[in-house]
């Protein structure tokens, strides 16, 4: 049996005309292999650069980590339970007030930043970039900055959460407002509503569920982040946690970590309950 010559075979002709329909060409295969080799090489370099080929250090570290885990069990509060509870409450207060303040500032900023409320592209563009820059700076960096302004303590943490999330809320609310149904706005305007009335009766009822849902989601997320703001000195349970780790009180540290996990789980369940109460059982679950 002889193979048909490439010139006469219809398959070969088709292959020549549409090479991409016949799987990868040798050139593409080579390119894929090169990309793979480059990624593998880069990974090896990155592993080396971050100290993963320092076997002594890794083995020593794993041994120490084993000791730490041993010391962590069983977790114990050693009589500091109510101190830790105070830290947890402080964390919750920080997350609650920070999120609330961010939402209070975010709603008017969201209206200002929405294209369909303020149809001025330069203003819109500028405000959006300001939101982006605020959002781009991590809460921990804001916390360090506010410690310089108002001193150590939970208040600096509240301000860090409030300022950082104002940028996020401004952006999210503005996007929600831009996605509304225009007909209700036109209806209020046609009935003789003023600009404020258009916002109150035409826009707000449409975006309220979205806003509430976002605020609750960020409250959950801020509860998590407020637990670590204390590590840099901005109040909350993180301060106690980092103190315990610094003096190697591992059983108390483990107890605090467990308390954080329980608190976060409770807040998640509670905010799901509030969301369902106001919005109904929505499928919104980011």
């Amino acid at each position: 049996m002889t193979r048909p010559s490439p010139a006469t075979s219809p398959t070969a002709a088709l292959r020549q005309r549409h090479p991409h329909l016949f799987g990868k060409t040798p050139a593409e295969k080579l390119r894929d292999r090169l990309i793979l080799a480059a990624v593998a090489g880069f990974s090896l370099y990155a592993l080396a650069a971050t100290g993963f080929f320092d076997l002594d250090r890794i083995l020593g570290g794993l041994g120490k980590l084993g000791h730490v885990l041993g010391f962590m069990l069983p977790p114990a509060h050693n009589g500091y339970f109510w101190d830790f509870m105070g830290g947890i409450l402080e964390t919750l207060a920080m997350a609650f007030l920070g999120t609330l303040a961010a939402a209070v500032m975010g709603v008017p900023l969201g209206f200002l930043g929405a294209k369909n409320v303020v149809p001025q592209w330069l203003f819109h563009f500028g405000l959006r970039r300001i939101f982006d820059s605020i959002r781009g700076i991590d809460q921990l960096i804001w916390a360090l900055i506010f410690i310089n302004v108002v001193g150590l303590g939970p208040f600096a943490g509240i301000l860090a959460i409030a300022v950082g999330d104002t940028g996020t809320f401004g952006k999210l609310f503005a996007e929600a407002i831009e996605n509304i149904d225009k007909r209700q706005v036109e209806g209020v305007r046609a009935a003789g509503g003023s600009k404020i009335q258009v916002m109150r009766f035409g826009i707000l009822p449409q975006v309220f569920p979205v806003i509430l849902s976002q605020v609750l989601y960020y409250f959950e997320s801020n509860t998590r982040s407020a637990t670590i703001l204390g590590i840099v000195g901005a109040g909350g349970i993180g301060l106690q946690l980092s103190d315990r780790i610094r003096v190697y009180n591992w059983d108390e540290a483990a107890f605090i970590i467990l308390m954080i996990l329980v608190t976060v789980a409770i807040i998640d369940a509670g905010s799901r309950h509030v969301r369902e109460h106001f919005i109904g059982k929505a499928e919104y679950r980011p």
Binding site: G51, L241, L261
Partner: peptide, 22 residues
């Protein structure tokens, strides 16, 4: 559920200062 920074505190103790812990 445990934040990165908390792991980092523990790993800095075990593996020493530097990028490995991070």
């Amino acid at each position: 559920a445990v934040p990165e920074l908390v792991y980092a505190l523990i790993f800095v103790f075990a593996f020493g200062l530097g990028p490995l812990a991070g």
